[in-house]
Every structure is written in C-alpha cells, then in structure tokens.
Design a protein around this nucleic acid. Sequence first.
DNA 1: TAGGCGTGGAG
DNA 2: TCTCCAAGCCT
Length: 354
Amino acid sequence: MANTIPNPTLLQKNLLKWFDQYKRDLPWRRTRDPYAIFVSEMMLQQTQVKTVIPYYKRFLQRLPDWKSLAKANEEMVLKLWEGLGYYRRARNLMAAAQKIIRDYDGELPDTMEKILEIPGIGPYSAGALLSIAYQKPYPVVDGNVIRVFSRLFLLKGNLKTGKGHKKVWEWAHKLISHQRPGDFNQAVMELGATVCLPENPQCLLCPLLHLCPAARQGLQTHFPQAAKPSVTAEVSMAALFIGRSGKALVKKRSQDEKWLKGMWEFPSAEGKSFEDALRKLELDLKVKAGREELLEVRHQITHHKIRLRFFRATPPHPGPLLDGFKWVKLSGLRRLPFASAQGKLRKWLLDNDA
DNA sequence: TAGGCGTGGAG
DNA sequence: TCTCCAAGCCT
C-alpha cells in the first residue's frame, strides 16, 4: 500500500481544533510566564504529568521567579524535588536560574543558540520553551511525538536513536504550525498521552484517524517498532535496619558505587546471594544481624533488577559515628527506601524525620 | 553511541 | 507480579 503523506495543513487544522476542545487543564497552561514554563519543562522530563502537578504547584509557590530560585539554598530546592527523581534536574534548574540572572538580566533568552547553553536544556526542552513561551516555530520530539509520527508516517526501525530519531525531527520540522507552534507541539504530545497510546490506542476518538495509514491498516499497535529487548541482570542485595531509641542508622553511598552515588540509604551490600550480602554487611559494620527477613523491596535501575531484603541488626558499640553514617529519627516505618537524593532521604522517611 | 540517572503509573 | 516507559539530558 502506498505510503500516503498526510496533508500538513489539514493535519494541523484537525489537531489544533481537537486540542482546543479536549486539552487537559494543566497548571502550566494557565500561565505565560517563561519561568513557570521552564520549571514545568524540567519537571516533565521523563516524568508523567500527573506526578508533576503537585510538585509544580508547591515549587512555584515557594520559588515564584528566577531571582528567588537563583538565591535559594540547594538543600531547600532538593527538598522540594524530593520524590520526583533525576535530582540532577533540580541542580540544573538552580544553575539555570543563576545563569539567567547573571548573563541575561533575569530574562530567559529567546534564541535557540542561547537556550541550548542553559544547563539541563537539550533539543526537546529548547523547542518546547521557544514554541510555548515565545511562539517561535521550533518543533519538539519526545516519546509521544515518536509514537504519533511513527503511526502517521509508518516510520520503521528504532526511532529513539540515530537515523530514525533524526527522521522524526525532520517530520516535526516539516509539520510544525507557524501560526500556533506552541499549541501544535503540545497538541501532538497531548494526543500521544491521551489518545494515541502505546497499548490500546483510542483510534475511534482520534482527530487524525482519517489521515492515519497505520489505523487504516489496523497496524497501529505495530508502531513504533519495539526496540531490541534490553538485557537485565538480577541483583541480590541485603540491607540493615539498625534502630536505637526511635532512630535508624543510615549511610551515604560513596562516589564509587554503580548507582545512586552520594545518596543516603540503609546500609546495604550486594552479594551472590542474600546471605552472602548479609555477611558482607555484618563484616563491614561489625554488627550481628538477625536472619528473619523484615521486608523485600524491588527496584529497577537501568538494566538491573534489584531485590533488596532488609534484616534487623543490633546497633554497633556506641562510640564515634563512622564517617558517612548518621542517625535519622523515625517514628514508624511503613516503607523502607532504597536510597534517596543526595543528602536527603525520600519523603516517606523524612515525614518522620523531625 | 550507549549507558547512567529515579520514581511511579498503568495494563 | 511483571513489564514498559514517561513533555530527556549528559558524558
């Protein structure tokens, strides 16, 4: 079957009309403030809309403009970010604010060249900021755009990297609306997030159904084509819960660790088995642990599936605290975190950490 | 270029 | 329970 190319004008018109009628009411769509839009874009990197909303509101309430963010202390910014993940984004956000105050007199620049120099801003975010905050006709490509375009244009192969990815950008450049670039970009993403879903795409609700060759051929779930399956390794870890008078001992991970460098965790170790890991811990900390498993927590970190089992241990002999350890106050542990932001513990732990 | 970086939603 | 992957960036 011929790969018919949808008419760009028609595509824009249908999509924008649908967007006007069905777009979600999101807090960052109620402002034109480049700062607020910038914050939202940083938070939205690899993070779902629903997750971001409460963080976004709290962040803007506490740090409403470039100036307040630029002079904020890092502990406070990380605290506001706690639980969102990818903590480098929080530091980049601060660095961005400082740069904008220092180099641009407190105004987000409006050229691609300058925007790309801002820490934490790559091709996607630059396009989003220029189109949404400044109505400039730059496209965006994210996971949604890849999925929508792969179906609309029957794009084959891996579209996340290399030539395939470049192809998606070329389509995005061709299709961007010059009248309403910000709305067009958001509309494609909105369609991907609410209608053109990875599984069970809602084609009957799609404003582009009549333009979509994948849907016409019943191939919508065959696009985008699956990337090569990633090999994941299974890792066994043991962790110690060492409590004393309402407090628990936590440890800062070293910079030599494979993951979560510099983050706080309950003392843990890897091993060939849980027992093996537990013995290492006992040896390292010079403590004796019980063999009764308190809890098993599972974690996914790039290409690793981790099972972390917690065991109770009696506190080490009181004396000077070892370097990199500290006691945190806990009243009740409902969930045990694996590790957390640099110098911080995850919120359900800090809730109890007066 | 591929791997590291966090957490949680959803099927 | 398991898997996939989300408004990506950096090295």
